[in-house]
Design a protein around this nucleic acid. Structure first.
Lengths: 306, 306
DNA sequence: CTGTTAGCGCATTCAC
DNA sequence: GTGAATGCGCTAACAG
């Protein structure tokens, strides 16, 4: 249209504060610029960083994020999946607790990326971390410096992250010729409080453990609290490694050795995989990405016995 | 309608996977169940907890959350406000960086709650924390145990939280008859790295400081890193208090004394204020809530000089 | 190049 | 009680 007309119309639009109705536009286009993001717990820095990275990439490409917490509950996850489906989101990025939600969405024709855990392999894209390799590195390091009785703190055992990290632990033991001892692996837990209790039970049952491998930042938090409560000193009395490095671990004295996850990369990759699929830039078959971890050695791990 | 018919229809709906289109419904109703939430930085546990609390309350009342990060940037905030307005959200909860976004939304007739900071007083609801009182308690405690030269680490000086916390610091000094010394208050900063640098400059310029009050969890992180880097010991050499208690502060040895904010309450209250206003349960005039803080004394604060 | 029209999926209104 | 019509605000496809 003519430039002067265009300008006049624009001016009026601004003056009366006209903003096009995205709802009507979405109905017309049968597509929204919203992406559903479902995580377990926003208060856990791992998921917060993940969500922040996702949001940043979405925003950069003109999408926005509907964020929901599942609290690790299947019911909440189902509800969120239905919400996303009803909202006609362009796609969904989720840390699954069950395969059902993913399946429901995929069946409904919405693009899904599973992140951190994969529960519906072959049905959608997934972005994961090298859990087994990371756990092998951490355990291997402890073995190398002489530890033989290494306690393992695991989260929800049904979760892929837990089983893979357990596999890495076992694999490192096997490589070192150290037999696996079930009594060093307390029953699953989730919260820091649970982890503290588990750590206490472990130390009571097996006072001979010389090192602990906590397989999440939350579990590490609980373990540290309990170790301190008992007046035992990290590194001197007991070595500690964590899976999932978070900023405060660097501040502890001694600083906590940890397997750093590419958390930002996880979120960034998930968002890009999804947006590429929306652009039909992606291949038709599901793509799975495994991102590497890094072992960050700090002061919390030392040879046993003094 | 008749029960058997209803049942048959329901069954078919489930079988073919029919989910009502929320977009069409929203267009028809001229209202959505979405709430825009805009925070500064999801990676900061304070905002993550805030967002988690908001999301929980929204979900409980049948709303969902469009979450955006402003990164403390006015441009991003403007963009988010326009997105929210275009999306015809039921309301907006935001930690403002400028008054403009709030104003734009209020003018457009959308319900707004400012949280953590209030930049458009009288124009919308707000939920804040007793910043001045909290800072007075923290500073007062340091003064009581004998400190006289207390360094103050402040964030963005334009932000209300910073000015109020500064006011609390000054008020405590005044009550104790200690003159305010500008050289103890380095120029504003924001990130942990900035705080570390600021702390270094402060300790160089004023080697006689015996205590530091870091007015956010991020600033405390930077301060601790720098103090450790210099080989100085918290409590023994230098007392430290933080504003905004976060879980890792309890794990430090000595554990960090901090002014605990009711972060979850802040989010919960913001969501409830907003939803009440949508229900027209709220009074017509803006309501402002100030939530109390608590001083949690731990090991990082001790009398100066041994 | 401008103006008109039809329909996205739902819910409300009216007629039956 | 059930069924048909209308319009929410936009845009794509038309006709003028």
């Amino acid at each position: 249209m003519a430039a002067p007309v265009r300008e006049r119309v624009q001016a009026v639009a601004v003056r009366i504060g006209y903003v096009p109705d995205a709802v009507a536009r979405s109905l017309r286009h049968r597509a929204t610029r919203a992406v559903g993001v479902l995580i377990s717990d926003l208060r856990n820095p791992f998921y917060a960083d993940l969500a922040a990275a996702v949001e940043q990439r979405l925003r950069a490409r003109g999408y926005h994020m509907i964020l929901a917490n599942s609290d690790g509950l299947a019911d909440e996850e189902e509800a969120a999946a239905t919400l996303f489906q009803a909202s006609r989101v362009a796609g969904v990025i989720l840390a699954p607790v069950t395969a059902l939600a993913t399946r429901q969405l995929v069946d409904a024709g919405v693009a899904v990326v599973e992140v951190d855990r994969q529960l519906a392999p072959g049905e959608c894209d997934a972005v994961l971390v090298e859990n087994e390799e990371g756990a092998r590195m951490a355990t291997g390091h402890l073995l190398e410096i002489g530890h033989r009785r290494i306690g393992l703190l695991l989260g929800e055992l049904e979760w892929q992250t837990a089983t893979e990290r357990l596999a890495g632990y076992r694999s490192a033991l096997e490589l070192a010729g150290v037999p696996f001892d079930e009594s060093l692996v307390p029953r699953s837990s989730f919260t820091a409080a649970d982890a503290a209790r588990m750590t206490g039970e472990l130390l009571d049952r097996r006072p001979d453990v010389t090192a602990i491998f906590a397989t999440s930042n939350v579990l590490a938090e609980g373990a540290i609290a309990e170790i301190q409560r008992r007046g035992r000193r990290i590194m001197t009395d007991l070595s500690l490694v964590a899976f999932d490095d978070v900023p405060w671990m660097r501040l502890m004295q001694p600083a906590i050795s940890a397997v750093a996850q590419p958390t930002i990369g996880l979120g960034r990759t998930a968002a890009e995989l999804l947006l590429d699929r929306l652009d039909a830039t992606a291949p038709p078959e599901p793509v799975v990405r495994r991102l590497e971890t890094t072992l960050v050695l700090r002061g919390s791990t030392a040879p046993p016995g003094r």
